[in-house]
């Protein structure tokens, strides 16, 4: 997983690229890593282009991440879900909780023009 920070219109947006599988085996460490990212900025994008498979614990982890980002008055947005992963989000109705974008740059630039967290 790669994590990078990007400056979008004066706001710091964290972009994480998820890769491979997110399931019961790696969802716990994933949530820990997420806390480190969250300390840098509460505005986050998960680029899921390379995410192949997700199960309920992976889904639970991502929903948990969203909740933590919202607690910090930020947001977690998703980008580039493939057909398979998208079906899981749809079926479990987790899709409604997220803003989902076609690609990573759309998702990142969507933070532009929104009030800065903490300053609002």
């Amino acid at each position: 997983m790669k994590f990078s920070l990007d400056n979008i219109d004066g706001r710091l947006v964290g972009i994480a690229r998820l890769e491979g599988r997110l399931d019961a085996r790696n969802s716990k460490p994933f949530q820990k890593t997420f806390l480190e990212w969250l300390e840098k900025t509460p505005l986050l994008v998960f680029d899921c282009t390379l995410l192949e498979f997700i199960d309920t614990s992976g889904l639970g982890a991502i929903v948990g991440c969203l909740r933590k980002a919202l607690e910090k008055e930020g947001d977690l947005r998703l980008a580039g879900l493939n057909d398979k992963v998208s079906m899981v989000f749809e079926m479990t109705q987790a899709k409604r909780l997220f803003s989902i974008f076609a690609n990573q740059s759309d998702a990142a630039s969507s933070f532009a023009g929104e009030p800065n967290p903490g300053t609002a």
Binding site: D55, T56, D83, K84, V88
Partner: peptide, 18 residues
């Protein structure tokens, strides 16, 4: 679970889903 339009297909590993 199959999507007839895109042809995508995913095998669920959680028995409580599907």
């Amino acid at each position: 679970l199959n999507d007839p339009k895109s042809g995508a297909s995913i095998a669920m590993e959680d028995p409580h889903l599907l």
